[in-house]
């Protein structure tokens, strides 16, 4: 049993995790007959709290309530992992990348998030504000404008050979590369 927990605790390699994520598509279709996607959950939350005067939220959200339960499950998975088989403290990042991070002023590479940015006590700093509020706003606005996010377009859409999803995913990477290479270094030094 301990051996098994050790095996589960170690970070899972991509060739295990990737296919398992892909299998979420047939699992969702077979068990509850729903299309894989995460970001629409934000829209359903708005509809559920009754923003009906806005036409975009005026529909029967209960038909999509599975989406809210699905993301509740993702939330609960965090509890479970932290309690039963937490990840090792530090991720094995490439040496080059750690050096680059240090040059940008990110010295703590433990955990999942850089502690110098993702902490309540740093929220008043301009770089945390831009990253947390700006980044959040853009993924919300962008995913609805694009019609999906990494799960709905990149995983589900590309699995269906959808041209619209391919265009969206190209957009994801153009936007991501621009920010990660040229904008983030400026913001991290604020």
């Amino acid at each position: 049993m301990h051996k098994l927990l050790d095996l589960l605790s170690d970070p899972w390699p991509w060739y295990v995790a990737g296919p398992l994520i892909g299998l979420m598509i047939p699992t969702l279709l077979f068990v509850i007959n729903k299309d894989f996607g995460i970001s629409s959950s934000y829209r359903h939350m708005c509809a559920a709290v009754g923003l009906k005067q806005i036409r975009f939220f005026d529909y029967d959200w209960k038909e999509h309530s599975w989406s809210l339960f699905f993301v509740l499950g993702v939330f609960l998975s965090g509890f479970l992992v932290a309690l039963i088989f937490p990840n090792p403290d530090t991720i094995h990042l490439s040496e080059n990348f750690i050096i680059w991070l240090q040059e940008q002023g990110v010295s703590d590479v433990s955990g999942f998030l850089p502690s110098e940015i993702f902490q309540w006590e740093h929220l008043s700093s301009s770089r945390s504000l831009i990253i947390l509020i700006g980044g959040g706003f853009l993924i919300g606005f962008g995913s609805r404008y694009a019609g999906g996010c990494t799960s709905g377009h990149a995983i589900m859409g590309l699995s269906q050979f959808s041209i619209g999803s391919l265009i969206a995913v190209i957009g994801f990477f153009i936007g991501g590369l621009i920010v990660s290479w040229f904008v983030l270094p400026i913001i991290l030094k604020l």
Partner: peptide, 12 residues
């Protein structure tokens, strides 16, 4: 929309 999402993805 994809580009805007990408901006947010990399920021966050």
């Amino acid at each position: 929309g994809g580009i805007l999402f990408g901006f947010g993805w990399a920021l966050l």
